[in-house]
């Protein structure tokens, strides 16, 4: 477990049940300032419920969450939005706002009732910086409904960056993306956190990415935090078995030597089964 001295988020013994199902059971974690933390686990393990609790979107039945030493339950939505930005899994295709409109909206917590683009000069700078960082200048006036999944996800991240918060929480930011788009998002997140000014919390199923780009990995199973370890010690068969209840194939990366997960072969070799062309 990490030290609490530098912690920006501190959750202690949080439990949450819904409709008779235990979604989180006595989960405790701390997130340190400037840290890159990955949360992994099987589908339905409680990862999204955990971050919904950290974001104040779900109220735990028991336990406590503190943000910068203050109870989350006593923090207003505006104060919370000035501290944590959230990137949901995927934006629905039906959203027809342009990229600029969508990114501008993330300045809500800073502008209050003032009209966007008129009084929020800092906001205009933040929006422009986020557009530049995510390389989406060409999408400014395009509707989200006409963008590809990768483009929409970059706009999604740009909006969170424009919120100018010290903490960024992302829920499976590369799910449903092709390898090229995944690589772009990985690079983008590595760039924005390289100065350690932003604390990054990411839910992902990409264990190879988690082990290579993050400082720490938390493994959740059935609502319990099974393991909280440094990334370089996470990729071990026994650890992965504990979290995923399945045997995963590990192999060293040819360049870095880090352990990588390879898919199990589930069919006979291509030489014997490939169709004739």
């Amino acid at each position: 477990m990490s030290s609490h001295s530098n912690s920006i988020i501190q959750a202690s013994g949080i439990s949450l049940s819904m409709g008779g199902t235990q979604l989180l059971a006595n989960a405790s974690l701390s997130v340190n300032m400037g840290e890159r933390l990955a949360i992994v686990g099987s589908n339905g393990a409680g990862k999204t419920t955990l971050i919904r609790c950290l974001l104040g979107l779900a109220d735990p039945d028991s336990g406590s969450i503190e943000l910068n030493g203050h109870p989350l339950s006593e923090t207003s939505r505006t104060e919370l939005a000035q501290q944590i930005a959230y990137v949901p899994q995927q934006l629905a295709e039906r959203i027809s706002f342009t990229a600029t409109e969508f990114i501008n909206m993330s300045r809500y917590a800073h502008t209050g009732g003032a009209s966007m683009n008129q009084f929020d000069h800092q906001g205009t700078e933040a929006v422009e910086e986020a557009i530049e960082q995510t390389n989406i200048s060409h999408l400014r006036h395009q509707s989200l409904s006409t963008m590809s999944g990768g483009e929409r996800q970059r706009v999604n991240i740009a909006a969170a960056l424009a919120q100018k918060t010290p903490i960024l929480i992302l829920d499976e930011p590369t799910a449903h993306l092709d390898p090229k788009q995944r690589g772009l998002i990985h690079k983008l997140l590595a760039n924005i956190t390289k100065n350690r000014e932003i604390t990054l919390v990411v839910i992902t199923h990409d264990l190879n990415w988690a082990s290579s780009d993050f400082d720490r990995i938390i493994g959740i199973r059935d609502g319990h935090i099974e393991i909280d370890a440094r990334a370089d010690t996470f990729m071990k068969k026994e650890v992965l078995m504990k979290v995923f209840d399945t045997e995963l194939l590990l192999h060293p990366h040819p360049d870095s030597g880090r352990a990588m997960i390879l898919p199990h072969s589930s069919c006979s070799s291509p030489s014997t089964s490939s169709p004739k062309s």
Binding site: R52, L55, G56, L57, R77, T78, L80, A81, Q82, I84, A85, Y86, P88, L91, A92, I95, F97, E101, F102, M105, S106, Y108, A109, G113, M116, Q163
Partner: peptide, 23 residues
């Protein structure tokens, strides 16, 4: 008065809340 909140609420409740709206 609530035009900005309506923009955010028309996306999802979670997005609106995470941007600071008292949903």
């Amino acid at each position: 008065i609530f035009h900005k909140e309506l923009n955010l609420l028309s996306i999802t409740d979670d997005i609106a809340a995470s941007r600071g709206v008292d949903v």
